[in-house]
Design a protein around this nucleic acid. Structure first.
Length: 596
DNA sequence: GCCGTTTTCGGCCCGACTGTTTTCAGTCG
């Protein structure tokens, strides 16, 4: 990440502007890295890393917290770090960080992003060769100059070269929606053909993180050798990276690494917990175990040598005095505290979802007609679908003229008259222009069942203009939902500059829904913002944004974000029956008809 | 550098693997 984003250059340009949360957390992570190279106390290093993580999990702006003197309520932020945050946020720089940078250049710190290079080797490289970049490192490794350093021999040098190759090949995280179908297929195959008594996904993919780096699978094998054979001979496998009795690693043809770990049956639960993570959640669990006089590791929960639990995750949590915590919540964002006080949310489930609020049809740029969409909905167990085609100005996506929109309205009314089980709502994904105006006049919006507003153009506005543009759209009485509120495309496009806490506040004020766009490319809102919206009393809607019926599956990717955002059924518009939904939507439009 | 049912000092999560070692440090998850 360091090498691809000229982040600190940008920071200098905006010297005096208030730093955003992620900029502050990046500075703290960089400080931790530098301290590590300098060989400082690992506890002090860890304090910076924990603080960075806590900042990443914040739903609101550090800038506001500085102003309102609310920094010390953030876990892991004490007096010293609060002062550093204040300095960063108010001046755009941090004297302490500048001093550190004069001792250890960032170019060296960045080398630690290469697998196999940690603080020790980074320090050596700096002291002996003053290496400043990856190219220089590669040149020296190829010239077999690294092995002259103390503690480095041929093997380590080769590892570093391999690490450089991996790094260049992209350590990028991939969107969940691209990886999950492959991973589920692998698990199905393994369950059937690989001599496994038990098998489960683990790691970030089991927690349904929006992006994943590699796939972890955990299994109990009746015959590890034959399991390894079955796994490594899959047609999807391009290369076997390693194969032992407990761990088999492969790389698939499209570059994804998959690790299969084999454990004993009576440790499966503890191992599943351990390998599911997150790391931060596990650390908290182990701390809890220690407080109770126990020890927790991947083999079980122990009191001295006595195993108290380990066969199932439920047993492990129970023995720690906790209810089962769903994998999606295991991020150390308050789930342990909530579990201790009995305040875990009852997460919305697939069965709770009655419909999809954002599907494109053949009327605009969608591939399928109303019948096909309804048939697919029925297959997915849904009762209703909101058909939201693009509005007039979005010509590139076949945006509908008013005339054509009214045609569509009639077609949907006729369809509903003859469709007993799946009902369609006539909606539109209405473009918000650069000033916050909507693409159809109010009297046209008033005829629709469902109005979803969205930004599709002019992404490069500054934050205050982008925010007021969207706020203006939210103030339109006929708008029900704001679609993909931040506009991010995973791995392709950063969110546009929008003040999400302000959007959430305005959505709450005007009783508008915010969308969780389930498209594999988007997942927008994200989990953290989703929870902030819930906490502000905002209703969330989930939309697949499908342009072909197969993509309606993406509704369930959206569901995974909802679950990671702590949403319960009552927070999600999709859990309403058709009758409830139409009353709800009409209710807000009725309000719109009142003078205001 | 943070934190407190182990409260203002003395703790701070755990283990595997690898490579370089002869008892262990570095890296990773």
């Amino acid at each position: 990440m360091w090498l691809t984003q000229p982040f600190f250059g940008n920071m200098l340009v905006r010297m005096v502007a208030a730093l955003r949360n992620e900029e502050v957390s990046r500075v703290f992570r960089a400080i931790a890295d530098i301290l590590e190279i300098k060989g400082e106390s690992r506890f002090r290093i860890n304090a910076y890393r924990r603080a960075a993580q806590a900042i990443d999990n914040l739903p609101d702006h550090l800038e506001d917290r500085v102003r309102e003197n609310r920094l010390l309520t953030i876990p892991g932020i004490g007096k010293d770090l609060a002062a550093k945050i204040t300095e960063l946020v108010t001046t755009g720089k941090l004297a302490y960080f500048q001093t550190l940078q004069s001792e250890i250049p960032m170019s060296l710190v960045q080398l630690m992003d290469i697998p196999g290079i940690g603080p020790r080797i980074a320090q050596l490289l700096y002291e002996e060769y003053q290496i400043s970049g990856i190219d220089e490192l590669e040149r020296l490794a190829r010239a077999q100059q690294l092995r002259r350093l103390p503690g480095i021999k041929k093997k380590t040098e080769e590892n570093i070269l391999r690490g450089i190759e991996l790094f260049r090949g992209g350590l990028a995280r991939r969107p969940l929606g691209r990886v999950l179908p492959v991973a589920l297929r692998l698990v199905d195959y393994l369950r059937e053909y690989a001599f496994l008594d038990r098998v489960s996904l683990a790691g970030s993919i089991r927690r349904n993180r929006d992006t994943v780096k590699d796939v972890d699978i955990l299994g109990v094998s009746a015959d590890p050798d034959r399991t390894a054979e079955a796994f490594t001979s899959l047609p999807e496998v391009a290369e076997t990276l390693g194969s032992g009795q407990t761990r088999i690693s492969v790389r698939l043809h499209f570059g994804l690494q998959v690790d299969l770990r084999l454990v004993k049956n009576d440790t499966f639960g503890a191992a599943l917990c351990y390998f599911t993570g997150s790391k931060e959640h596990n650390v908290r669990l182990r701390e809890l175990a220690i407080k109770k006089g126990f020890k927790l590791n991947e083999y079980g929960l122990f009191r001295q040598d006595e195993r108290l639990a380990g066969g199932s995750e439920h047993d492990v949590y129970q023995a720690l005095g906790l209810p089962f915590i769903p994998p999606e919540l295991r991020e150390n964002r308050g789930e342990i505290e909530a579990a201790l006080t009995g305040d875990l949310p009852r997460l919305v489930t697939r069965e709770d979802l009655k419909g999809d609020l954002h599907v494109h049809s053949v009327f605009s740029d969608g591939h399928d007609d109303l019948e096909q969409i309804a048939r697919q909905a029925k297959e997915l167990g849904l009762e209703w679908v909101g058909i939201c085609d693009h509005s007039a100005s979005l010509r590139i996506a076949g945006g509908l003229s008013v005339e054509r929109l009214l045609q569509k309205l009639r077609a949907i009314r006729e369809f509903n008259d003859r469709s007993p089980d799946v009902k369609l709502l006539c909606g539109a994904e209405v473009d918000i222009d650069r000033h916050g105006n909507l693409d159809y006049p109010d009297e046209v919006l008033a005829k629709l069942d469902l109005v979803v507003a969205a930004v599709h153009t002019v992404f490069k506005l500054d934050q205050s203009h982008m925010t007021s543009r969207i706020v203006r759209a939210l103030q339109n009485p006929y708008v029900h939902i704001l679609a993909h509120p931040t506009g991010r495309l995973l791995g392709e496009r950063e969110p546009y500059l929008v003040d999400v806490p302000v959007i959430i506040k305005e959505a709450a004020r005007h009783a508008k829904c915010l969308e969780i766009n389930g498209s594999a490319r988007r997942l927008d809102l994200n989990d953290v913002n989703c929870k902030a919206a819930k906490d502000s009393g905002v209703m969330l809607s989930i939309g697949s944004d499908a342009h072909r019926v197969e993509q309606m599956q993406d509704l369930f990717l959206g569901l995974s974000v909802a679950r990671r955002g702590w949403l319960e059924a009552r927070n999600v518009l999709n859990t309403m029956s058709y009758g409830e939904l139409t009353r709800y939507l009409k209710g807000s439009s009725m309000q719109a008809d009142q003078p205001h």
